[in-house]
Design a binder for these strands. Structure first.
Lengths: 207, 207
DNA sequence: TAAAATAGTGTACACGTGTACACTGAAAAT
DNA sequence: ATTTTCAGTGTACACGTGTACACTATTTTA
């Protein structure tokens, strides 16, 4: 009843996922991993791989889901910290930088597959990023009482800036990362300030 | 003296470059190309490849240079148009979108190799993008009389936003691209507005 | 308790890869 | 006119790949 068999299966499935994630690095992308490599790293015979995923593509999409999950943990943590007070922008950026530092491989996966060669991957990553953006959009609309259109534009721009900064921060030492964080905070302030101005005056329609 | 030999060599070298560029697409990245494929597409025996490049890596870096060249043409064209008057931001974005449309593969190359697995590639792409950013920074400083630090932050943010928009615009139809252009223009206005405000007041140092 | 299901193994195969090597023929140098 | 250089060819090899297939051992079902 406990399903000692299903339990074991789930365990080796995890081993495959972890093996794949573990092989990612700045010089190794998911698409450069082979089924055999991943199976070997997980301590499995190559053909056993098929008991869990029909091909590497399917494993990859699972990894993207996994990454989405991590992204939501990140959001939750940022929200918690913000509730305790302080600069929203600064807290968000610092939290994101911590995420990059301890989840480099996961972030790399998102970053690369977003412009990768598989339409399914691109769609999956964009779905996660969109979720992230809409969360932020809601927050901006509510907290800053912004026009809905303006809030979306701001959220979208902010996410773009932050992800790009994350990319820059991936392979850099702590000092440089700090530098990048400061730059990013200031850029987000530009955007916030501009959005606030336009929200008051209204987006221009012509001319 | 005319170098009928060197002339022919240059010609087949171009064939290799064009063959590689031509094989790029939304579902085909440079790293997924094989030496044999490129040679075949160029109408060459696989081993002849080595008469021109020591390996695919070297060809790839050549392509990045090529892409940088195209990027500068883009800047030149934008500048020319701006001189004739009109909204700087709008002209820039429209020009960039045209670039995406007619040079999709080149832009894809930059986009992907910027977060790719080769440090040399990443460095080469970042070099080109930095050049692009500094050009814009100069312009902003001069035309808008901005504080140097603020101008850099604005230029960097603007380039990030525009490149990201380019990525979004790669595989969509004309209507969607128009939509993306409008969004991008508005976001750049946010940034410009925010930068102008902060340039007047000065960036805050503490608190 | 007997039968069925199934996670994992090992062997085997065809395929595409990078590249070493010996070669050819025409351009360039002597 | 003779020799040298060298862009391009064709053959050959070892290697890693995905995956089909027949198998084993153990859990689950009947």
């Amino acid at each position: 009843m406990s399903g000692i068999r299903a339990q074991q299966k789930e365990k080796t499935r995890r081993q495959l996922i972890d093996a794949a994630l573990g092989q990612l690095s700045s010089e190794r992308s998911f698409s450069s991993l082979s089924l055999r490599e991943v199976a070997k790293e997980a301590g499995l015979a190559p053909t056993s791989f098929y008991r869990h995923f029909s091909d590497m593509n399917e494993l990859g999409l699972t990894l993207v889901d996994e990454a989405g999950l991590t992204l939501r943990q990140l959001m939750r943590q940022a929200r918690q910290r913000i509730e305790k007070g302080g600069s929203v922008i600064q807290i968000s950026v610092v939290t994101f930088m911590e995420f990059i530092e301890s989840n480099g491989n996961i972030f790399r996966l998102l970053l690369r597959e977003r412009s990768g060669t598989s339409a399914a991957f691109r769609a999956a990553v964009n779905r996660e990023v969109r979720y992230f953006t809409l969360e932020l959009c809601d927050y901006l609309q509510q907290a800053n009482k912004l026009n809905a259109d303006v809030a979306f534009l701001q959220a979208d721009a902010a996410v773009t800036i932050v992800f790009s900064a994350g990319s820059d921060a991936l392979d850099v030492d702590k000092d440089d990362r700090q530098q990048i964080a400061l730059r990013t905070i200031q850029q987000l302030r530009f955007i916030a300030r501009g959005a606030a101005e336009f929200s008051n005056r209204g987006l221009k329609s012509k001319t």
